[in-house]
Design a binder for these strands. Structure first.
Lengths: 221, 221
DNA sequence: GTCTATAGCTTGATAGAC
DNA sequence: GTCTATCAAGCTATAGAC
């Protein structure tokens, strides 16, 4: 029984370690820039275990991509129900956008570190067509639609189509920001830091909020 | 003489064809997702010509990335000098943002098609750290700084740091939009199309303009 | 400049021992 | 479950003929 427990634990550990190491390497080099050999070497496990646990390199990549989806989507949906839709539009927008972003950032420090590589990976995937259907169409779009409808309800001077454009720009800003390329550090001469997630989130929300409120509406505003 | 001219022309043609085909394939699969063999096969030239003309696969990729930089940066700098900085802020912002975006879009239809693959490639590169220095730090940052300063001059209720955040979000929105992932098509139920560049540019500029004007400033606004 | 031929290495995947 | 050993294919790069 002790023996059995130990084996089960080790099995889960190795599988988990492979996923963690693969996530880190994929987020740095993309799927084609990393070989199974590099992953297993870095994870300190045998080469054949990737095929044993996941079937193929592609399946491993898919598993890395979708293993965090359920929790993140659930958290976003839950938070959305807690928004006070009767508050002033600016405050509602802030709440909605904040609730969408935070599950990707994490609450405490350990969760932020835990999600660091996943954020970079999502940044890569979001500007590529290749895994679009697997990740976004299948998993994240339903949640995004709920958020769009909530934003539309709050900013009803806009058409739904315009809210989609706005939300899409917001997503583009967000995914580029979490890629942490360091570009803003250079452009701002070090005054703005891509590593400062709290500041980034605050600026992104006030930026998007102002855009939503100020975009030309469909009533000749 | 006829013979010499013909050879020169053919030489330039093959080199050019390799660059065009490589740009198309790289923009679809990334550098590690494409082999020299696939490129030369698609270009209908001999395998060894990539190494003959460019030295290595990496050098070919670099050449694909930077061959359009000079013209684009020149056009952006030129257009920036034509902005009427005495106009109302909203109009100045529109002019500045428009001048930045358009060289990446192209004027007539043939130029738009010509730049199609380059846009997708830039979208890939902009969310990756790997070629950040080669492309952005070395080539595009000086131009971006000029645009940031122009925007700061126009929106002087903001700190330069905040203008950097805004411009960075604008860049993120832009690069994600030109990736043409088709996501907005789904989220909008077909009412907004990622293939409609004119509409995208118009929405992006009015979105960013409203954000710049409405962001909380440093005078307690 | 263009081609053939090939060296030398890495890749994903698997068969079979334990 | 984990390991060794290995296959077949694909890869970049180059040397040398024309």
């Amino acid at each position: 029984m002790d023996e059995k427990l130990k084996k089960t634990k080790e099995k889960k550990d190795k599988r988990r370690i492979i996923l963690d190491v693969a996530e880190a390497l994929f987020s740095e080099h993309g799927i084609d820039g990393v070989s199974i050999r590099k992953i297993t070497a870095a994870a300190n496990v045998d080469l054949s275990l990737v095929n044993y646990y996941f079937g193929s390199k592609d399946k491993l990549f898919e598993e890395v991509l979708i293993r965090r989806v359920a929790e993140m989507s659930g958290e976003r949906m839950l938070k959305l129900t807690s928004v006070d839709m009767s508050a002033p539009p600016e405050q509602v927008n802030s709440q909605i956008l904040h609730n969408f972003v935070m599950p990707l950032i994490g609450q405490d420090i350990s969760e932020r570190i835990e999600l660091e590589n996943y954020r970079r990976l999502i940044a890569l995937v979001s500007n590529s067509r290749r895994w679009q259907d697997l990740v976004f169409k299948s998993h994240y779009d339903p949640v995004a639609e709920e958020y769009i409808d909530a934003l539309w309800q709050t900013n009803n001077h806009l058409t739904r189509s315009d809210v989609c454009w706005a939300f899409s720009f917001f997503l583009g800003s967000l995914t580029n920001a979490i890629a942490k390329t360091g570009r803003i550090d250079r452009l701002s001469y070090g005054e703005a830091l891509s590593s400062d997630l709290d500041c980034m989130v605050e600026k992104l929300i006030s930026f998007t909020n102002a855009a939503l409120r100020g975009m030309p509406g469909n009533f000749g505003e």
